[in-house]
Simulated scan of single mutants.
Amino acid sequence: MSDSVPVGKADFRPARAAAAAAAGAQHYPVGALYVVATPIGNLADITLRALHVLGLVDAIACEDTRHTQQLLRAYDIDGQPLIALHQHNEATAAQGVIERLQAGQRVAYVSDAGTPAISDPGARLAAACAQAGLRVVPLPGASSVTTALSAAGLAGDGAFVFQGFLPAKAGERDAAVQALAQEPRAVVLLEAPHRIGALAPALAALGERPLTVARELSKQFEQIATLACAALPTWLAQDAQRQRGEFVLVLHPAPTGAQDDDAERVLRLLLAELPLKTAVKLAAEITGAPRNALYQQALAQRDGGEI
Rank of each mutant, 00 (worst) to 15 (best):
Q131F: 06
L48V: 05
G41T: 01
D45L: 00
A91W: 13
T65V: 05
L43F: 10
L82P: 04
A113P: 02
A74V: 09
Q87L: 12
V53W: 06
A123C: 03
R66T: 11
Y109T: 05
L54W: 07
I77T: 00
V35C: 13
L48Y: 07
G104Q: 11
C62W: 03
A123I: 01
I60P: 03
R66S: 12
A103M: 12
G133A: 02
I83N: 07
L54I: 06
L51N: 02
C129W: 06
G55C: 04
V97W: 10
D76P: 12
V53Q: 08
V53Y: 01
V53M: 06
H86L: 00
T47S: 15
A132P: 03
A130V: 14
Q70D: 13
Y109Q: 12
L56P: 11
V53K: 03
G133P: 08
L82Q: 01
L43V: 08
E99D: 15
G79E: 08
G55R: 10
T68M: 08
R66E: 12
H86A: 01
P121H: 08
A108Q: 03
I118Q: 05
A94F: 13
A91R: 15
Q70W: 14
A103W: 11
A61E: 05
I83W: 13
V107S: 03
T68Q: 02
L134G: 00
V35R: 07
G104D: 10
C129L: 07
E99C: 02
R100T: 01
H86K: 00
G55H: 01
L54V: 00
D58A: 02
V53H: 03
Q70T: 15
N42V: 01
V107G: 08
V97D: 10
Q95D: 15
A130D: 13
S111G: 01
G122K: 09
G122N: 04
A74W: 00
R135G: 11
T68I: 11
A84Q: 12
C62E: 04
R106P: 13
